[in-house]
Design a binder for these strands. Structure first.
Lengths: 192, 192
DNA sequence: AATTAATTAGTACATTTGTTCTAAATTAAC
DNA sequence: GTTAATTTAGAACAAATGTACTAATTAATT
């Protein structure tokens, strides 16, 4: 029963490090010192591994959703806490974001799943914005139209910052988080 | 002599449509109704096709560089012209931007080449900004530190907007250009 | 026209990959 | 302790892919 979990863990690590097109089911099996046959006993198709990891990502977002939904005390720190939380999740499952296009080509349901998740994140983000506005964090309430443009900017930067970093600077996790944060915060500058 | 060009054209089209991991040298050959052997007479390695297409991209950026470097009359239209020009090039070679990570994994020199190009684009963009400032397009000169953050935001949005669009809205070229433009322009709003 | 160089088609081979199958080994159930 | 179910290893197969090789055809050169 625990083998399945070990396969997922190893797969996540290998996909994150080497990308989905270089890592095969045999590689994962070898990494765990189990046979390929055994691996395919637990996951009939290799894609199932990826899709299950994607489900894990969704679950982590949901968990965070519940956490922030019921938050009571919003303060100056909340914004950067939220940014760090988002980054942590994206970083943990970074292979998904580094290979979105590839994944949407290879796994049919992935595209719709991704957009479902995106809606949830959007809702959550707007919620946080409202709370921050109510708490007087922003000078003025951000107009709906502006917010919608900002949301697109934020999602592009959130989901692709790691790609940008990997092909460019190659910063380690902490430094990357710092830069990512400054890019997001800068978007809100006119309202601070 | 012209076969080589035809291979590149077909490859660009197929890569753009189906992504680099689904398109093989045999697919390209079949598309042109030539033999795989013939294709490999012109390109010893399949990667060479991709790398040559990448060189084409660099050349197009260089061509535009010369054009904008010597421009004399900067006006209100210049900014959106520049944005449209950038978008056109990125769109034409979109498979490169949709598969940056994959490419940097598969082709060694790609990563350094991409960063070289990035420096050129950065220089060019700063140049345009200066010209726009001198022409009174911006209220104030954008501070160096702010500009550097904006540049990162702009590059992420420029290079990954098409990925964002492909996985999400799926807008056609013109609509995509419009949205992309509004995302970039919005970044300059505090200075307009 | 004859020779040389280039292009092309088709075959062939090694490797990789996903997947299936079978039999052995381990674990659980009774 | 015996039987049944689960898990595992390893072999085997088919399909795909990159690439090399050979022979034929076409184009260029003289």
């Amino acid at each position: 029963m625990q083998t399945k979990r070990r396969i997922l863990d190893s797969a996540l690590e290998l996909y994150n490090e080497f990308g989905i097109s270089t890592v095969t089911s045999r590689h994962i099996a070898k990494d765990l010192r189990i046979s390929a046959g055994n691996l395919h006993y637990h996951f009939k198709r290799t894609e199932d591994i990826i899709y299950e990891l994607y489900q894990d990502l969704v679950n982590e977002f949901d968990k965070r959703f519940l956490l922030w939904e019921n938050i009571t005390n919003i303060d100056n720190q909340s914004m950067s806490d939220f940014i760090r939380d988002s980054f942590e999740i994206v970083y943990k499952y970074r292979f998904i974001f580094l290979n979105v296009i590839e994944l949407s080509n290879r796994i049919n349901i992935f595209k719709s799943g991704y957009n479902e998740l995106r809606l949830k994140r959007e809702y959550q983000f707007k919620d946080i914005c409202n709370k921050l506005t109510d708490a007087g964090y922003f000078k003025i309430r951000i107009p709906e139209h502006t917010l919608s443009i900002m949301l697109s900017q934020i999602f592009i930067i959130s989901d692709f910052y790691l790609s940008y970093n990997q092909i460019g600077n190659g910063l380690e996790k902490d430094a990357a988080l710092a830069e990512y944060g400054s890019l997001i915060i800068a978007l809100f500058k006119p309202y601070l």
